[in-house]
Simulated assay, not measured.
Amino acid sequence: MTAYPVEEAAPAGRAARRRDRRKAEMIAAALQILSSSGYQGMRFEDVAERTDIAKATLYHYFPSKDALVSAVLETLTSDVLTRLREALDAAAGRSATDQLRALVAEQLHVLTVLYPEAGKLFSFPAPWPSEHTEAIKTMRRRHDRIFREVIDRGIASREFDCPDPSVALHCLHGILNHASIWLRPDADSQGRTREAVVGESMRLFVRA
């Protein structure tokens, strides 16, 4: 007979949470190193040192460098897409202009506050191994689809005036990725600058 099942489950739950936190720390460190050194320059030793763990412990969580890189890409993709969908849901029922502005503002927040490394990582990407290339392409397609659906609605309603929405979308990402490089995440005084970046980005789509 098993006694006190709730009390026995508690330590296991705490252990799982500790593992999740440690794993998240490794992924965050790997993202930082990938953005500064690229895929070729990312070493397990550097990730272990930055997270203050033994290299053997890192291998316990991720059996290879590529497994760690895959986890970085999956985590980044999932979180960014979730945040964009939440921003879009919050603007549901509003105009395409308001919805696109909400997406642009959230994307800028992601790139300058939550994941300032991501803009650098994908603005000037170094060659990736073939096993990651398709994952990155899929990530970009899923990401762009969220924006493109709103842009297409804006064009259909004649709120937006952009002859080539694909080019306009590429230009939008160029603006936001570049802004992530020079906008500091800890500068409250730059709130107005961020608002200006969003406003200027909208000029790619909104009729004058």
Rank of each mutant, 00 (worst) to 15 (best):
A9T: 06
A9S: 09
A10S: 03
A10D: 02
P11Y: 05
A12Y: 02
A12H: 02
A12M: 04
R14G: 11
R14E: 15
R14Q: 13
R14C: 13
R14S: 15
A15C: 12
A15T: 09
A15S: 12
A15K: 15
A16P: 12
A16E: 02
A16R: 09
A16Y: 04
A16F: 05
R17P: 02
R17Y: 14
R17T: 15
R17H: 14
R17M: 12
R17N: 13
R18Q: 04
R18A: 03
R18W: 03
R19V: 04
R19T: 05
R19Q: 04
R19P: 04
R19W: 02
D20T: 15
D20S: 13
D20V: 13
R21A: 09
R21C: 04
R22L: 07
K23E: 07
K23G: 02
A24L: 03
A24D: 01
E25G: 15
E25S: 12
E25M: 07
M26D: 03
M26A: 06
M26W: 09
M26R: 02
I27R: 10
I27C: 08
I27N: 08
A28R: 01
A28D: 09
A28Y: 04
A28E: 07
A28M: 03
A29T: 08
A29D: 14
A30Y: 07
A30C: 09
L31T: 08
L31I: 05
Q32Y: 11
Q32P: 13
Q32M: 08
I33R: 05
L34D: 06
L34F: 11
L34R: 03
S35C: 09
S35W: 09
S36P: 14
S36T: 13
S36E: 12
S36V: 07
S36L: 06
S36A: 06
S37I: 12
S37W: 11
G38R: 12
Y39E: 00
Y39P: 00
Q40P: 13
Q40T: 14
Q40H: 15
G41R: 01
G41I: 01
